[in-house]
Simulated scan of single mutants.
Amino acid sequence: MRRTLMLILPLMSGSFLAIDPAFGETLTVTPQAVIEWKPVYAEVETRDRVPARARIGGTISALDVTEGDMVEAGQRVAIIEDTKLLFQIEGIDAQLDAFGSQLDQAQADLERGQSLSERGVISNQSLQALQTNVNVLESQITSLKSERQVVARQIEEGEVLAPEAGLVLSVPVSKGGVVFAGEEVATIGAGGAFLRLGVSERYADTLKQGDTIEITEAGTATSGTLAKIYPLIEGGRVQADVEVEDLETTFVGRRVQVRLPVGSHDGLLVPETALTQSGGLDFVSVELPSGPSDRVVVPGNRVEADGIVWVEILSGLTAGDVVVTSHE
């Protein structure tokens, strides 16, 4: 005696829950929610695109990275040299030497003045003048040292550092080139990768965060999760991001075909094993009170769930029909 199995399909779940029909069993077909999919193309993108910028202007004397390199946060990307800063350092050092010599002489004069003042040879006013001269020279030396630290810091800022860890996407400069302060030396793709897609605004209300997205690449089907939908519509298109586990990021900007759930409709589904072909027509065996009878049907889309391929029947069956799910 054949058993009758019921097929249960949850709405917009991205997968179908079904009882595996065994050979010789029957299935009572009832309307089930069938997801409607919209095929679109998405591009592989990094979450952030952070520029590594020059902090000073000058000539690029060293370029340590190229496109495709992986860098760590704070890693040196390039070195920029400004010869004017080196000249400033040399000039400041020369002034420091000169003022140092003057300070040594002023301090010696002050010591002699103090000795003479104790013996009453010079007045206190002359001694104060010698002390003032020492104080002025010490202040000038302190000011020059501070100025030297500023210039030295500018020279240190000639090292262009990676702001975040990630993949070097572009290096728009070359060794020996001249750059200005704030100019981009390299672009770093950081924060992991995702798929970014654009879809017509008429589907905006049907997209929901958390939806399962089907991805087809190199003949292999995987799935992802709709992680973010951007509220700004540009050119009649809505942008969205899809999280995909272990997404290949060798080529950023690579296009990948995906399918989005944009709605659902009620349909009659039977296992693919229930269909037979003859003379270019598709048949399904239907159980009648008088016995099995082959009926011509028009099949539609195929859906795989839990290892079983289901076929939507567009015409030839009605709800409540009992079909033979497989043939011995």
Rank of each mutant, 00 (worst) to 15 (best):
L195P: 04
V168T: 02
D306Y: 10
K175N: 13
L130S: 10
E157V: 00
S139W: 12
L275G: 14
T325R: 04
A22S: 09
S13Q: 04
S126T: 10
I19H: 14
S13Y: 01
L63F: 03
L317K: 09
V50R: 04
P51H: 10
L317A: 02
V297C: 03
E243L: 11
V322S: 05
A181Q: 13
Q277G: 12
P21H: 07
T250C: 00
G68T: 01
Q75S: 15
E45A: 08
L247V: 00
F180G: 15
T249N: 08
A165N: 03
G158A: 07
L96H: 01
A165T: 11
Q75N: 07
T28P: 00
I89V: 13
I155M: 07
R237F: 12
K208S: 10
D64Y: 10
A319N: 09
Q105R: 11
G316D: 07
A54Q: 05
N133E: 15
S123V: 03
E245I: 00
A62C: 01
Q149N: 14
S315N: 13
F251N: 07
V238K: 08
Q32Y: 00
G219A: 09
A33G: 02
A98K: 09
W310V: 00
P299N: 10
T83M: 05
G57W: 03
G198H: 08
E287R: 08
Q128N: 12
G177A: 06
A162V: 04
V199I: 15
G166A: 06
R3G: 12
L5Y: 09
S170K: 07
G253C: 05
E156A: 15
I60E: 01
N135D: 15
G253V: 03
T83N: 06
V65T: 08
V134G: 05
Q140M: 09
P231V: 03
Q125V: 05
I8T: 12
I80A: 09
E243T: 12
G280E: 12
V270C: 07
Q95F: 10
E159I: 09
D266S: 09
E156T: 11
R49T: 11
K38L: 15
V151R: 00
N133H: 05
A227W: 08
A221L: 03
T250A: 13
S13N: 06
G74W: 11
L247R: 02
N135L: 12
A94R: 12
L9E: 07
S143D: 14
K84N: 03
V252I: 14
T28L: 01
T318D: 12
D241Q: 12
R112L: 13
R237I: 11
L260H: 02
P10A: 02
V178D: 07
G320L: 03
R53K: 14
V160Q: 06
R196Y: 06
V29F: 03
F283W: 13
F283C: 02
E328T: 14
R255Y: 02
D306K: 06
I122P: 11
T46V: 14
T30F: 01
A98T: 13
Y41F: 10
G24M: 02
E67D: 03
V150G: 10
V173I: 05
E328V: 13
L144P: 05
A165K: 04
A190Y: 02
N135H: 13
A204P: 06
V284L: 11
L5K: 04
L27V: 14
H265L: 04
A193G: 03
V322L: 04
R237Q: 15
L63R: 04
V150Q: 15
Q131P: 00
R53F: 07
T206K: 06
D282Y: 15
